[in-house]
Simulated assay, not measured.
Amino acid sequence: MEVILVPDPAAAGAVAADAICALLDRKPDAVLGLATGGSPLAIYDELARRHRAGRVSFAAARGFTLDEYVGLPADHPESYRNVIDRDFVSRVDFPPGAVQGPDGLAVDVEAECAEYEAAIGRAGGVDLQILGIGTDGHIAFNEPGSSLASRTRIKSLTRQTRMDNARFFGGDVAAVPVHCLTQGLATILEARHVVLVATGAHKAEAVGQLIEGPISARWPATVLQLHPRATVLVDDDAATRLELGDYYRQTYRAKPDWQGI
């Protein structure tokens, strides 16, 4: 796991955007894993800015989202299909239908989850997966206690996650769905490169566990310690629980330019 400490969310967005642009330069038809929520917004803002400047194109790329609420109407503004379109897809040049997510309105949930796994496989797998992390250590909607070998499935959301997401539903926890469809931890681990962004003091404990804690289903993100190419971008506020911060800074400063991230 590579840990990169940055001063603020904008700096994290720039580093992640560098990696995505480099990937698309060498592989224009790359498959991107797209996260929703607050953590990746700086990445999407930077990529949209570079696209407007003619520096990057997504015209041959594909994308898969991590998760979807169960039961939200298709036109609900907080459906993750609509969120990712609003936050990113509509701001760049993905072809129509190039970005897909699991169907939270599917009648046969198990079949939908199996088909979503198969669709990722048919696309050749995810080249670069963007991730955030919840205050309780979840990635995608893999809540504490999730199997480290889990695949795409239906999950019940913890009250903490629903409280964290209530800000998107007018502050009303009761309006946040109880269930979701989510890529599993084993599914996420199959991405060839994982880039996780964590910003803000409220993420400090989760970040400490992710980077320096033991691998445990109690903190699902810790499974990324097993990934051969995981990059974790952490701003100063989220890094306060790290004991080895000076080492991470020293390592990144000494890294050869040709390695990238």
Rank of each mutant, 00 (worst) to 15 (best):
M1A: 12
A12K: 09
D18M: 05
C21W: 00
R26S: 13
P28T: 05
G33E: 04
A35L: 09
G38T: 10
S39C: 08
P40Y: 11
L41K: 14
Y44C: 05
L47Y: 10
R52A: 14
R62M: 07
T65W: 01
E68C: 06
G71L: 06
G71W: 12
P77K: 03
Y80M: 09
F88S: 02
F88V: 06
P95N: 06
P96S: 07
A98D: 08
V99P: 01
G104W: 02
E112Q: 14
E112F: 09
G124M: 07
V126Y: 01
V126P: 00
L128I: 14
T135F: 00
G137F: 06
G137C: 10
P144Q: 07
S146W: 06
S147E: 09
R151P: 07
R151Y: 08
I154D: 02
S156A: 14
T158W: 02
R159K: 15
Q160W: 01
Q160I: 14
G170S: 10
Q183Y: 00
G184I: 11
E190L: 07
V197F: 12
G200W: 09
A201P: 11
A204K: 04
V207W: 01
A221I: 01
T222M: 07
V232A: 15
V234Q: 08
D237W: 01
A238M: 11
A239I: 08
R241M: 14
Y247F: 12
Y248S: 09
R253A: 15
R253S: 13
A254F: 03
K255W: 13
K255E: 05
P256N: 05
P256D: 10
W258C: 07
Q259P: 00
